[in-house]
């Protein structure tokens, strides 16, 4: 018992150390690393976590998260650059718009399940992409350049430290917020809908409403990532939300692990590191990315975080001197939604 407690404290301690190290990146690392790897993996992690939340807790594997990301990012960029809005107000407007679009997408897609859900959200991704690629208001293919983040956050290229810390805070808030939701009545019921919609209807739940609200709840998270991406890169265009990017976000989330929220950032960090440093080594970066993706899906449905988790519990088991593995954690890791299940 005391051993278990110590181990729990140990895990918490390890997490705290990780967080401190991550927070010290701007101090310890180069400006290039902070901005190229740090900023990118943080905003990519935030958009990926909106997908991890939907698929892990709601059984909805969505390709439309980049679309919502784009709605918020492009609207915020357009309002601040062309209409001279205050960046914070523009960001808020963009995120609200993304939430409204999320509600609409959720309402339309909530009747579909599994693979059909994947495909209807792919249609949303394409509609949004073609819309922004065609409409001159949003710079068409050129996009909107010269986006200026709020002055307090500093210059993301020359001096990315404050921007980095801001993204880190938003990441932590998104993580805590979504984790909190997953433990509330609403979040548990969402997991119930993931496991068996027919059962949930028989228990008195409005299954579609739950799906719609779950989808809507993830939208501002994806939207925030879009705004942060526009700020970090000082630009955004339709190309930032193409189908290839939608698939990239899916890849990131899968590599990190769809079972746990933190997987999103782990996957994003792995991707960004490879993207930054592997490209110099090999011309066939995408091939290797595909291979990693394939291997993860085949051998570890829980992604890298799942692998780390099993390694961790093996170690605990060892350290605890062969005592039975600890009882189920208070929030169980939901199984990967590998099948549309339910309404067969």
């Amino acid at each position: 018992m005391t051993m278990d407690r110590m181990l729990t404290l140990g895990t918490r301690g390890a997490l705290a150390v990780v967080l401190v190290v991550v927070a010290l990146v701007p101090v310890l690392c180069t400006t290039f690393f902070t901005s190229q790897v740090g900023l990118t993996s943080l905003w990519l992690g935030i958009v990926a976590v909106s997908l991890t939340f939907l698929s892990g807790y709601g059984g909805m594997v969505s390709l439309a998260q980049t679309a919502l990301f784009g709605v918020a990012g492009l609207i915020a960029a357009r309002l601040s650059v062309e209409s001279g809005w205050d960046p914070w107000a523009a960001a808020l407007a963009g995120i609200l718009a993304a939430t409204a679009v999320g509600l609409l997408f959720g309402a339309v897609a909530s009747g579909s399940q599994g693979i059909y859900f994947l495909i209807i959200t792919l249609a949303f991704a394409q509609v949004t992409y073609f819309y922004f690629a065609a409409v001159p208001t949003f710079g068409a293919h050129e996009g909107i350049n010269g986006v200026r983040p709020p002055a307090v956050l500093g210059d993301p290229v020359q001096d990315p430290a404050r921007m980095y810390w801001f993204l880190l805070v938003v990441s932590v808030l998104a993580f805590l917020g979504l984790r909190h939701v997953s433990r509330t009545a609403f979040g548990l019921a969402l997991q119930g809908v993931r496991d068996d919609p027919v059962r949930m209807a028989a228990l008195g739940y409005n299954v579609r409403l739950h799906r719609i609200l779950g989808f809507t709840l993830a939208a501002p998270v994806a939207g925030a990532a879009g705004v942060l991406s526009a700020w970090s890169n000082t630009r955004m265009s339709a190309g930032s939300i193409s189908l290839a990017i939608a698939i990239l976000v899916l890849t990131t989330a899968v590599i990190g692990g769809l079972n746990r929220l933190e997987g999103a950032w782990v996957g994003a960090l792995i991707y960004t590191l490879c993207d930054t440093y592997l490209r110099g080594w090999t011309d066939r970066f995408t091939t290797w990315l595909g291979v990693v993706f394939l291997v993860i899906v085949l051998v570890s449905p829980g992604g890298v975080v799942g692998l780390l988790g099993s390694a961790g519990s093996w170690l605990r088991h060892r350290l605890a001197g062969g005592a039975p593995p600890p009882a189920a954690p208070s929030t169980p890791a939901p199984p990967v939604p590998v099948s549309s299940g339910g309404a067969r």
């Binding site: 594997v61 394939l294 899906v297 085949l298 449905p301 099948s339």
Partner: peptide, 16 residues
């Protein structure tokens, strides 16, 4: 029978 997992596998294959 694991349709989403199969879909993910084929996405990976198509990237490669």
């Amino acid at each position: 029978g694991q349709d989403l997992r199969q879909a993910l596998i084929t996405i990976a294959v198509s990237l490669i």
